[in-house]
Write a protein that binds this DNA or RNA. Sequence first.
RNA 1: GGGCGGUUAGCUCAGCGGUAGAGCACUGCUUUCACACGGCAGGGGUCGCAGGUUCAAGCCCUGCACCGCCCACCA
Length: 919
Amino acid sequence: MDKTYSPRDIEERIYARWEADGRFAPSGDGPPFCIVIPPPNVTGTLHMGHAFQDTIMDALTRFHRMSGDRTLWQPGTDHAGIATQMVVERQLNAEGRTRHEVGREAFVERVWRWKEESGGTIARQMRRLGASVDWSRDRFTMDPGMCRAVQQAFVRLHSEGLIYRGKRLVNWDPVLKTAVSDLEVQSGEENGSLWHIRYPFADGKGHVTVATTRPETMLGDVAVAFHPDDERYRGLDGRKLALPLTGREIPLMADSFADPAFGTGCVKLTPAHDFNDYEVGQRRGLPLINILTADARISDEAPAAYRGLDRFEARKRIVADLEAQGLLEKVEPHRLTIPRGDRSGAVVEPWLTDQWYVRIAPLAEPAIRAVEDGRIRFVPENWDRTYFEWMRNIKDWCISRQLWWGHRIPAWYGPDGAVYVGDGEEDARRRHGLPADLPLVQDDDVLDTWFSSALWPVSTLGWPDETPELATYYPTSVLVTGFDIIFFWVARMVMFGLHFRGEVPFREVYIHGLIRDHEGQKMSKSKGNVLDPLDIVDGIGLEALVAKRTTGLMQPQLAPAIERSTRKQFPKGIAAHGTDALRFTFASLATLSRDLRFDLGRVEGYRNFCNKLWNAARYVLMATEPELPAGPATLSAYDRWIRSRLSATVAAVREGFAQYRFDLAAQAMYEFTWYEFCDWYLEFSKPVLQSPDSDDALRRGARRTLLGTLEALLRLLHPLMPFITEEIWQRVAPRAGVEGASIMLQPYPAEVPDAAEPGIEAEMRWVKDFILGVRRIRGELDIAPSVPLAARLQSASPLDLERFARHEAVIRRMAGLASATPLAPGEAPPQAAAALLGELRILVPMAGLIDVEAELARLGKRRAKLEQELARAEAKLGKESFVRNAPPEVVNQERERLDAFKRELAQLAEQHERVASLR
RNA sequence: GGGCGGUUAGCUCAGCGGUAGAGCACUGCUUUCACACGGCAGGGGUCGCAGGUUCAAGCCCUGCACCGCCCACCA
């Protein structure tokens, strides 16, 4: 083995081997365990969020696979309608063409080509991360099987009256020229104005004033409302107003919709361009006047003077015209919420169109119950509040999109405009008894991408067919996802899963936090703070990193600032850390927090951890060859101690996995590996193995324990660090007497029932404290490690002496002692620095070694600390209420502490006096 | 307006009602036989603020402050 661990040499090779050997497919007949992957955009690339999520899913998958479960991690990708179409459209635009010039068929074909071209990227990246998905079951949301599922779902919902077509207001993205759902609208506060406009009475006598943030929509006004209780307008109900600029007359009406406290108390009603007005309009039987076109220009419904103007241009004109006519009373600055399309960034218009909707309330109700009664459990639990909140106020889901890339809606129109829904055109004819020669035209629209995503758990497993996979793995075990798509995806899967399968799609939903940069900022291309997980794995030079961050920006003017900050943050680029280190970092970040700050320093630390493990393995392999002749083996206290510690660690790690606390699991692994196995046990093993006078049985025990502990530790670490553990395991397992082609096929470590040995742990604590005591003296008094110390033992109890005798070799080596002899009875203690271990005092004679003042300072520091503790303990025990009310064991413990403090203080005082006399 | 988080060492974060922890960073010593991506030792926190419950409160309750997210929004 090389002296330094280099991940690059092993990771890709190991993954290829696993894949070739078919290690990722479910096997065995254990209980099923299944995760379906949240399908990433097929043409996208893997970002930190994916890498994080994949790490968690892979850890769970490997854990369950090793635990003997029949484990399926179902992979796949999403066609991501709008996002993908936009990318290809941009490519076209760069060639100077539009999709309309190319035509639908050719355009869709081109998207497919782009999908084939770039679709492999995500899969390649997942392989580099070690994702053990069953590639043989890879699915894409527009695969033929998926299309069937989508069509059947649509047809069935339609036949059940749960899908309908209707003309109403939708959120319209005038740049993409499609409807979008409520969830795809991002509202944000922006600066605007509030225009106060006079609407004269039709009889020419007087006016009312309305306040609006959108003066251009006045062209579509059909009424003005005031509150019925508003004294200012008493008796004016039903009066006619002359709508400025249009020549139309509209009524003034009393309606409780109007808020008397806002503006003038009069509100203009524009049912075709405002959701609230629309409702009032429906209630009051008002007409709809649609004054906007699909690209948000003024339509032919409006006066000729404004037709064809862009909405914002029209606003300026209208305001100017009103002002010219003396109808603009005032303009005030106003903060208002502007709805924008989450993809295009364009201001979304409420717009009147025909769209397809899912009647959602009947689907939501059972989905709410499934979480209420615990058939689905959120982790962390309180996300159910968010889920309930949305589900209980849910609105019908607009599922049609005026795009070309996606699942085309399975509806056909006859010459008379009648709609026929069916599972394909032929089925539509059959269902509706249409003659073969009746010309039918399919609906132009495609379905919201989330419609097919909502079917993902059932469709990937084979639905609508009754496949063995569906029978085995549905409901799936756990969904791993971010809170940002609880509504988009989680809730809809629950609704569809329950509706089409009669069972929940997953039993648990693990909601993880969002990966942000080290400053807590969301990672985004335009902020220039994106990290590519594979750059952390493989490393990247500064120039390449700068280039990567500054090319392809939507706003190229940001490039210089991004370059500057990148050069500042990564003056040397990013070093290669390897996949295992990155994965371990992700695991340790997986706390219950919802914002996770990613810090490269952590990855470095865990890269070092990998190196530590690697070198520990080197030591174990070196220390266990050449092989000893067969014979009996005896376990030393050290062997039993590390076995006991390992067992406790296994329990902690398993608990971590069970609770989805990957951070705690990772921490338990880290601490055991470094602080117990490496720092202590490997050192303990050295005297045993190297001393010429240890016996062979003891040596065999140590070797067996070294190999056995390391082998189990590798299995324990494998779900988080698959590559390095496999690489080392391949070398260690044979020598540990374990057979098998891969660590992936080995059982996950279980707690050993009688491995816990409190007695041994106590004895080893004494040994460690002895060593630490001497080391502290050495460290604080600046004695070089190369200087061997001759220690004396004072006030040693028989147990102390017995323990010392048993562990002398280890203690001498690890504390750097040349000798440690008890004082003879009556012998005066030498001038010395002392470490206290209960009653025992370990004396390090000062002759020629020790700086008196330094030792006095050291003693003073310890005394100050002790006095503080002592005061607290005394105060506690001095309170009668504590002694009376606290549990006896707590009181006893406190008393023992107090006694110990007193003893140690007395000894310190004595020691202080002795040292001070040397001055 | 409604809902949900967060506030613990310089930074990033754990923390079970009973002696405040880790990683990174920092200081000193150390390149000898697993590892300098290492070893040994050390410094550093009145746990956002104010009340309350309790023998005992980062931990439970109430209020407040600040930061953040989600949902719904008055034209």
